[in-house]
Nucleic acid binder design. Structure first.
Lengths: 342, 342
DNA sequence: CTGTTAGCGCCTTCAG
DNA sequence: CTGAAGGCGCTAACAG
């Protein structure tokens, strides 16, 4: 299957009456070339419809112009905007995107190795749970940055205002008059889970309300997690009038679980999510949630990587979150809150 | 930035006391090697922690072991499962995924060129609107297959039972007793839009109901399209008791638009979607919709490509759709249907 | 079965 | 400013 390339630098060098080296120079813009020759080369490129072979270029230059993206195995709409952000930033720098998702137990590591074999210039690692040391070992000397994932080295992680956002969300509920607020939390060993829980706790503390562990359920960020957790609370019999879910997906699932029990949103219980995914504005009712600039976070991850790859000091913005009030929250209606039937 | 690779075939050839060619042979399994030497090579690989340079391998073999995926610029949860399907199939064959999204007017073509420069072994083109001829010109001799997009050459398109699905959906509404059914349609020049409209029309015809163009609104597949189209119908004053939307996203938007006007789902109007996206089961109410195996379609696209790349006769399954009845549909309640206030 | 020898297509010193 | 020459790391004939 060894198919030779149709037209190479040699062909266009011949056509333009220059040396291959010169062709390379005008194509890369790597060093000045006489206008005459430059024009000739460009003309030849057009005439022969030449397209550089990136594999050869990369091999010779030792620079793949490619960044790898490792995604969790889960299919979730959450990652869409991040992928787009990564891709947009890459395209702006004329870089390419190699994608691998982490399937199975050692999936994350295998995905990284795969990408490493392709000699990516950087790695964006989204989600996932591997420790810093494992990642460092796997990534060798290629720079990597974590998005929506834990990393002890804070300078390799795109940070977002999880605590602030969670505080805002909880505060909003508090302001409405709720005092018994359930928190459907993400995994505590995940920063997005832990920090949001902290924000929740902080808002409660600031309002002089004690943190009741029986109102906080740890689960995963997914739809199924939200559903199970909500049902567990409902079955537990603890009274509450509001729910703060760690993700919109959990919130959506919680709303359905609540409705299934005959509870109205926000009439009987208010619900706040986190992420402001596309569907949040179109749920019924439209979801009050915390907006998180996930697209921009993907972009920032790439900018960071590229800077490091060039040996520059990397940028590392910290992203803010903000509350988007829609229709899933309202003041508690006394006497209608959920109560145990036990 | 020319960084030499730490350890190469030569290093491990030296370590194992064989020739580089033999190293290559055991690593690729391309031709038999004595057990002794094979073991030595493997040991050396372990010892030196060798990782093959795929760029070099690809350049030498003329086979990139990479497939390109072109995605529309739109961020939509719809594509997630397809990407995962593509990726899963690729991984199973030890191939890699290069992704590019089509941004701007000439984005699709540019994305393809980008991927072509990387010498991808095949192209999965999702969505998009370029004609067969343009694609053929852009893709040259690399095989491509379209998913969820138009293509005159049916053998290069992954087909799904759009007509059947739409017929099922419409039939379901008809069975419930609805006769004035709005169809929020996708673009007629897109097979997914046109075929679903045809299915709608066929079901109507089979029931002896004439096709009323004022009940059919052509728009895009997106949330915004669904919302605008629904509002247009509502403003038009034409009475109806049910809506069949060409996608779940449109259905979700339609539900919100309907609710905003004080209409209950399914009390006042029934709504059916198409796609069975993840959120469909968790909407309020859970959405009756047509299931489409989008993950498997992504897989099939890759299988087709890989077969063609190997010179084998490609498989090209045709995918079936099925109706998933949930809670957004019910019999019409006489007298409560939407009527013009004009 | 195995080593030797050429490249794959491009880039990058190094002279000029 | 430009051409010649030598790799980048690996694989694919070709002889043994």
């Amino acid at each position: 299957m060894r198919r030779k390339q149709a037209v190479t630098v040699y062909d266009i060098a011949l056509e333009a009456g220059v040396s291959p080296a010169t062709v390379s120079r005008v194509l890369r813009g790597t060093s000045p070339v006489a206008h005459q020759k430059r024009a000739a080369v460009l003309a030849a490129v057009q005439a022969l419809n030449y397209r550089p072979n990136l594999m050869a270029r990369d091999l010779a230059s030792g620079d793949s112009h490619t960044v790898g993206l490792v995604l969790p195995d889960t299919v979730s709409s959450f990652w869409g905007p991040m992928v787009k952000g990564v891709e947009a930033a890459l395209r702006a720098h004329d870089y390419h995107l190699l994608m691998a998702s982490a399937e199975g137990s050692d999936g994350e590591q295998r995905a990284i190795e795969l990408l490493m074999n392709h000699h990516v210039d950087g790695l964006v690692i989204a989600g996932g749970t591997l420790g810093d040391d494992v990642l460092m070992a796997a990534a060798g000397d290629v720079p990597f940055v974590g998005v929506c994932r834990g990393l002890r080295h804070a300078e390799w992680r795109i940070e977002v205002g999880n605590r602030e956002g969670a505080r805002l969300a909880t505060q909003h509920l508090l302001d409405l008059g709720h005092t018994e607020i359930v928190h459907l939390a993400g995994p505590f060993d995940h920063p997005d889970g832990d920090e949001r829980r902290q924000g929740y706790a902080e808002a409660l503390a600031a309002a002089g309300i004690s943190y009741d562990p029986s109102l906080v359920i740890e689960t995963d960020f997914k739809i199924s997690g939200g559903k199970d957790a909500m049902n567990r609370v409902l079955d537990g019999g603890r009274a509450f009038t509001a729910v703060f879910a760690a993700t919109d997906q959990m919130a959506m699932a919680a709303i359905l679980a609540l409705r299934t029990r005959g509870l109205a949103i926000p009439g009987d219980v208010s619900v706040v999510g986190f992420d402001d995914e596309a569907f949040a504005a179109y749920c019924c009712p439209p979801l009050t949630t915390v907006q998180q600039p996930i697209f921009e976070m993907g972009q920032a991850a790439v900018e960071n990587l590229l800077a490091r790859h060039r040996g520059q000091t990397p940028t590392l913005p910290r992203f803010a979150t903000s509350l988007v009030v829609r229709e899933s929250t309202a003041p508690p209606s006394r006497g209608r809150a959920f109560q145990s039937r036990a």
